[in-house]
Amino acid sequence: MHGPASPGWLLVALCAATGGYCLLRMRSRVEEQRRAAGGEALMGFAMALMAVPATVVAPPRWAWIAYVVVFGGAAIRTLRAARGSAHHLHHLVGAFAMAYMAATMATGRHHGHGGVAPLTGALLLYFAGYVLWSGGRLVPVAAVATAGVGRTVGWGDRPELARACRLAMAMAMLAMLLTL
């Protein structure tokens, strides 16, 4: 993505760490949590790759096209699962935003000083709202010490950590959209 190198590397680190934590969450005993964590890990690592400063590595056009295909496919897959689930709808918007950013980078039509495209503005508003909403939900969540009789909750089953992970990725998406 375009922008200064130092914030770009911080964004890479944040997204990679979030993707790594989502891989840990895939060890959950709950199937739905494992599936969601897998999609979030993919998103985190892909965002880390996209956030590498363009001054270090300028990906070729085919790489951006590959992102469009991967995240366009993820958006279509998520669309099928999204019926009635706000969480799946958020994944749908995230996958669409990734495909949109990759398509913008592939075509070379960066908005830069010419203003913000309406779709970019709508995505910025969505992710800003999501950051505020999910941050507000994170505050009152108490850590769960046990699940069931004498069984401690593993890293993959901690709701406050999963919410923090989603919040971090939403903030990263917001930052990436700002550099578009």
Rank of each mutant, 00 (worst) to 15 (best):
M1T: 10
H2Q: 12
H2W: 12
H2P: 06
G8R: 01
L11N: 04
L11D: 02
V12Y: 03
A13T: 13
A16E: 06
G19H: 09
G20T: 07
Y21Q: 06
C22V: 06
L23W: 12
R25Q: 11
M26L: 09
V30Q: 13
A37W: 08
G38I: 08
A41T: 03
M43L: 15
G44K: 01
A46Q: 07
A46C: 15
A46M: 15
A46D: 09
A48E: 01
L49Q: 03
T55D: 11
P59R: 01
P59E: 08
R61P: 02
A66H: 01
A66F: 00
Y67L: 05
Y67G: 15
V68R: 04
G72A: 04
G72M: 01
A75W: 10
R77L: 13
R80L: 13
A81W: 05
R83F: 10
G84T: 09
H88L: 15
L89F: 10
L89H: 12
H90P: 00
L92I: 06
L92S: 03
F96K: 03
A97K: 01
Y100A: 03
Y100S: 01
A102Q: 02
A103L: 15
T104P: 00
A106Y: 04
A106P: 08
G108K: 02
G108P: 01
G108R: 08
G108Q: 09
H110G: 15
H110L: 15
H111E: 15
G112A: 15
G115Y: 06
T120D: 05
A122H: 02
A122I: 10
L124R: 09
Y126L: 04
A128C: 09
L132V: 14
V139N: 00
V141E: 13
V141I: 14
A142G: 02
A143W: 08
A145E: 15
T146Y: 14
V149I: 14
T152K: 11
V153S: 03
G154D: 12
G154M: 04
W155Y: 08
G156R: 05
D157V: 01
P159Y: 00
E160Q: 12
A162M: 13
R163H: 09
R166C: 09
L167E: 02
A168T: 00
M171G: 11
A172G: 03
M173S: 08
M173P: 03
L174W: 12
L177K: 03
T179E: 14
T179W: 14
L180T: 05
